[in-house]
Simulated assay, not measured.
Amino acid sequence: MHASAIAMVLAISLAVRYGYSWQATAENRKSQTYPQRHLRALVAFLLPPLLLFMTAVSIVWMGPVGGMVWGKAGWVSYILAWEFLIFAMGQLVCLAWQTWNLQQKVHTYPQQVWEGISFRLLETPIAYSALVGCWQRSLVVSRGMLALLDRERLHAVLTHEQGHEYYRDPFWFFWLGWMRRCCSWLPHTELLWQELLLLREIRADAWASQRVDPLTLAESLLQVVQHSLPDTETTENLGTAFSCAYPDNRLLERIDALLDPTESPPEVPCRCWLWVAVSFLPLAIAPFHY
């Protein structure tokens, strides 16, 4: 019984991921709005790991003995479920520890205030800005960023980072990053992760463009990317980096989105939560176990 449940969830997960990869072709993406892309990417990214996690919880809850109408329980699937849950919890603890260490490191940077905006100053010539942390977030700006941009463009960059704070991106991407670690072996995990990162930046750009000149923000983006290098440690630990390096086509996509006022920002539709609720269905079979 448990083995058939695991096989069914794996089959659904693979179908969801490969179905998304077909929809994510360049031609199909052009015909989709940003909210549609965000919904599909989130569902394809979240549903498979959540289904696997809830199935493992359900199997552990039912135990290795007993059965249901269509089969009996077994020790192999029970042990596999425990191993997956222990692995997932280990990844969560590891990610939380890394994030906490990063926060402690950031708190050692000197605090600065620029036109009412408080940030931590990172002493590096690389142009870099990031919103770092999970529950307690800190804005980090490098010395190179301050030297590179004039007042108007620096204001645009910091407003972009305020957009990440408004949407609580570091908090949500902490949990998305956990899902990425737990199920990196599933197909197209990295493709979906990069899509979500891009949509996250486009959404923060859209929020900022309502408060600063979109053209200035686009110019700032180009200027920063041309004079920066990716900070792997910070970006991997939930730093929302304005200066994160993108392939040329994705950088152009951000600029096109900024300069096209008719495009809606990639907000998360309410339907996404309905799909998340579907992942709890494996728990519904547990009461029928005997």
Rank of each mutant, 00 (worst) to 15 (best):
V76L: 11
L122P: 03
L95V: 10
F242C: 07
P261K: 08
S184P: 00
D256F: 07
P125K: 01
S21R: 14
V141W: 06
L50R: 00
Y109E: 08
F171K: 02
F174N: 04
Y128D: 14
P287H: 09
S184N: 04
R153L: 12
R168N: 04
H2N: 11
F53S: 00
E253L: 09
E161D: 10
G239Q: 07
R153N: 10
V212I: 09
A245C: 09
V140Q: 10
G116M: 12
A127S: 14
I285Y: 03
E253T: 10
R200E: 13
M89C: 14
D205E: 06
P230T: 15
S142F: 12
L92Q: 08
S77C: 04
A3H: 01
Y109C: 07
N249T: 09
F87A: 12
C244M: 10
P261I: 11
V268Y: 00
G116L: 08
G63P: 15
I126E: 14
H2P: 03
E236Q: 11
P247H: 04
F173P: 05
D150Y: 10
S13C: 05
P287M: 06
G67W: 04
L215Q: 13
Y290C: 04
I79R: 04
V224Q: 12
G71P: 01
P261L: 09
W135Y: 09
P170L: 07
I126Y: 06
I6C: 00
N28F: 06
L95T: 12
A73N: 15
P64K: 03
L158V: 07
C94F: 14
T234Y: 06
C134H: 10
S279E: 01
W178T: 05
A56Y: 06
L283H: 04
C270Q: 11
A96N: 03
A73D: 02
T262D: 13
V268G: 03
V76K: 11
W207H: 15
P214K: 03
P282N: 06
Q103Y: 13
V43H: 00
L51Y: 01
E195Q: 10
R151W: 07
M68V: 12
L42D: 10
P125V: 10
E190V: 04
F280R: 01
T124K: 08
K72S: 15
L131K: 02
S58Y: 11
T240V: 04
A284L: 14
M89N: 12
L122N: 05
L217R: 08
N101S: 15
H107T: 08
A127P: 11
L95N: 09
E27I: 08
F280G: 00
I285D: 02
K105H: 09
M8F: 08
D213I: 02
T189Q: 14
Y167K: 15
F87Y: 15
P266V: 09
M62F: 12
A56I: 08
P214R: 07
L80G: 11
W193Q: 15
Q91R: 07
L158E: 07
F53G: 00
D231I: 07
G116A: 12
A286L: 00
C183L: 02
V212Y: 02
L191V: 05
G177V: 04
L42K: 11
L274M: 01
W178P: 01
V157Y: 07
W75H: 03
S118N: 13
Y78K: 01
W61L: 05
V225R: 11
E165W: 08
E161Q: 13
Q112L: 11
V268A: 01
Q136R: 15
E161K: 05
